[in-house]
Design a protein around this nucleic acid. Structure first.
Lengths: 196, 196
DNA sequence: AATTTTAAGATGACCGGTCATATTGCGGAA
DNA sequence: TTCCGCAATATGACCGGTCATCTTAAAATT
C-alpha cells in the first residue's frame, strides 16, 4: 500500500480534527481519537502540528475557509433576491444539521464555549470569524433593505450581529432537543418579526 | 479544626462544581480540581456523588434554582414596568459578567455545547431549564405588550425564545472579546428594534 | 460493641507529548 | 542515467503525569 503524501496526512488530520472536535469537543477527545479518525499513526501527529491546541486553531480555520464558506456563498448568489438568499442560507444550515441528527452543532460556537477563556490564539480567530460572518450577513440585509424587501431600516450590522447571536442560540437548543423545531422557529421569527 | 457536616460538604461540592465547570468546562477540569476548590478531601467526593456526570447534573440544577433564579426574580418585580424589568434583567446580567471579567459565560450554555450530545440526563435538564427561562421572559413580554410598552403584538413565546437565543450568542461573543460590547449591543438592538 | 461515614491512598487506564529508528523523495555528483 | 547523501517525514513504543473511580482502615456515631 502506497504511503500517503505529507500533504495528505496533514489534510486528513485537519478534517478528522474538525469532525472529532465537533462531535466530542476539544477537551472531550484525545489526540489519539483524532489520529484514529484520520487513519494516521499517532506518531505522525506531531510532525504536522506542534500541539493539540495548534491543530484546534488550524482545524477551526479549515472549517471556516473550506467548509462553512461554501454555505456562505449562498448569501451572494445572483439567482435569488437578498431576502431569499438569507432564508435559503438558514434553511440549508438547518437541513445540514438535521442530516447529522442534530449532533455536533457549530464548531465556531463549541470552540467559543470551551476555549475562549483558555486559548488566546483561538479566541482571536473566533473573533475574526464572527466579524467576517456578521459582515456577510449584514451585506445581504443591506441589499434586502435597498431592494425594499425589509421594512425596517435599522443598522444592518447591528441586525446581523443580533441574528447570528440568535442563530447560535438556536443551534444550541436544537442540539439539546435533537429536533429542528428551534431552528425552524428561529427562521420563522426572523422573517415574520425581525426582518418583516 | 472541626469537621464539616455531611450537608456542608455536599453544598460545597455543588458550589465548587458550578464555579469550576463554569470556568474550565466539564471536560476541562478534573474531580480533584473541584474538591480542591471546595476545600474538601478528594476521597470524599464519591460519598456524595456517584460520578462526575452526576455532580454535573446536580450542579446545573443548583446553579439554576439557587443562583440564576435570584436574577430571574427581577422579571416579576412590581416596582418597575414590564419593559423596565426586562431591560434591568439583561443589564444586571451584563454587569455580573463584567464583574468576573467576561470569563465563564453561562453554565447553561456551556453545558449545552459540551454535553448535550453525550449526557442524556443533562440534556433533559437543559431542555427544562430553557423552557422555564423562556416562559418567564415570555410572561414579561406579554405584560409589556398588555401595558402598551411594546409596539409589536407578535407571539410572546416566540419572541422570548428568539431573545434568549440571541442572549446566549451575545454571551459567547462577549467571552471571546472580553468586553461588554456584544452585550450592550444586544440590549440596544433588543429595545430599539425587536421590542420597540 | 456494632454500625455507618469519612477520606487517604491505591488503581489501572489514559492523557498530551517525545523518542529513537526506519523510510522516503530529492538535489547534486559521477 | 545512476548513484549517493541527507533532510523531511513516518512510526509505534514509550514518557511522566493525571484521570475518574474504588478500596479500605480509621473515625464517628449509635
Amino acid at each position: 500500500m502506497a504511503r500517503l503524501s505529507s500533504h495528505d496526512v496533514r489534510e486528513r488530520l485537519l478534517e478528522a480534527g474538525v469532525r472529532t472536535f465537533s462531535k466530542a469537543g476539544f477537551n472531550g477527545c484525545s489526540v489519539q481519537d483524532i489520529t484514529d479518525a484520520a487513519g494516521v499513526p499517532k506518531g505522525s501527529f506531531y510532525n504536522h502540528f506542534e500541539s493539540k491546541e495548534a491543530l484546534g486553531a488550524a482545524a477551526l480555520q479549515h472549517y471556516w475557509t473550506d467548509g462553512a464558506c461554501d454555505q456562505l456563498k449562498i448569501l451572494t448568489r445572483l439567482d435569488m433576491s437578498p431576502r431569499e438568499r438569507l432564508r435559503t442560507y438558514f434553511e440549508e444550515a438547518t437541513a445540514e444539521m438535521a442530516q447529522i441528527g442534530f449532533t455536533c452543532g457549530c464548531l465556531v460556537g463549541n470552540m467559543a464555549a470551551e476555549l475562549s477563556d483558555h486559548s488566546p490564539i483561538i479566541a482571536i480567530q473566533l473573533s475574526a470569524i464572527f466579524l467576517g460572518w456578521s459582515g456577510q450577513v449584514a451585506e445581504c440585509i443591506r441589499a434586502a433593505q435597498a431592494a425594499g424587501e425589509i421594512e425596517s431600516n435599522a443598522d444592518p450590522d447591528q441586525l446581523a450581529a443580533f441574528v447570528l447571536n440568535a442563530w447560535e442560540g438556536a443551534v444550541l437548543r436544537a442540539r439539546i432537543e435533537k429536533a429542528d423545531r428551534p431552528l425552524r422557529q428561529f427562521i420563522q421569527t426572523l422573517f415574520t418579526i425581525l426582518l418583516r
